[in-house]
Amino acid sequence: MAERILMKGNEALAEAAIRAGCRHFFGYPITPQTEISAYMAKKMPKVGGLYLQAESEVAAINMVLGAASAGVRTMTSSSSPGISLKTEGISYIAGSDLPCVIIDIQRGGPGLGGIQPSQADYWQATKATGHGDFQLLVFAPSTVQEMANTVFDAFELAEKYRMPAMIFADGMLGQMMEPVTFPEREPEISEKPWAADGHKGQRTHNIINSLYLQPQDLERLVRERFERYDVIKKTEVRYDEFMTEDADILLVAYGATARIVKSAVVEARSKGIKAGLLRPITLWPFPSEAIAAAAANTKAILCVEMSMGQMVDDVRLAVGGKQVDFFGRTGGIIPTPAEVLAQIEELARR
């Protein structure tokens, strides 16, 4: 049987990436993703891989663009301010149909903000990770085990759909230690006939590019990309439900916050309040239909985030006109189960 190892979320993520066949990691130091880079720096040389510290997040994401163009599994990690710098490169990667994995271990913002956990970059990750019409796959794990599992999926889906994938966590998940069993799974690395890896006289040249000066060409390509997005929305949505079947009060939360909310739900149930939790695992594609279904017979809906309320927009869109309440802490403050329970109790009285 596979071994259970006690590990920090960030380290589990890095180890899983290596096991998933990633051999090219480009980073730039920033808290609270530090352990990912440190782990890569230590382990990559031992597996014949590369850890390269770039001069900036801008350079790191463009190194990823280059390595992805060459057809290898490649990854970068950062935290909020660094992700802002990567958005240019992410947009080019999306526009060039390249697969890669980007880790965002969020911290508080705006500006330099703080270094404590936050979920205030939901809009950035799901709606504006750079200019132009595009999406990335966004996975929001909520345990160390899930951090590890998600890496395999992120690489495979990024390659399947030729697009960037983001693992979107926060400082709390990154730093917490939990037992993890690495999936015994051989990486499925696909052929990349499109790669710029030298034609060897065997084919005409491959061009990796995002420039289309004819509007008709650009529109056609963007539309083709959005047709792929439609397939993803139908087939790749992931979420987890906890006690939603008979729930009067539906809670929606993701990532580390979902763990806190789960405790509050258990507590509420013990007090006779029928609460339930729907936890999106993919933030894009967003589990809109699942949320609508779970909310069909509830009396109240509460979205909890470590932000001033960002995912709540998507929850409101999902439930079409029903009232959705919001509770959030921001700036690096983690909501407590007691605070969430108090919100649930208030809704129950309403």
Partner: peptide, 24 residues
């Protein structure tokens, strides 16, 4: 050029080249 080509963001060509070269 008849060789394989990658188009880089403005100014980032050396970083893109770094990724290409380190990968292969």
């Amino acid at each position: 050029f008849t060789c394989d080509m990658v188009q880089a963001p403005h100014g980032r060509a050396p970083a893109v080249a770094t990724g290409l070269k380190r990968a292969r």
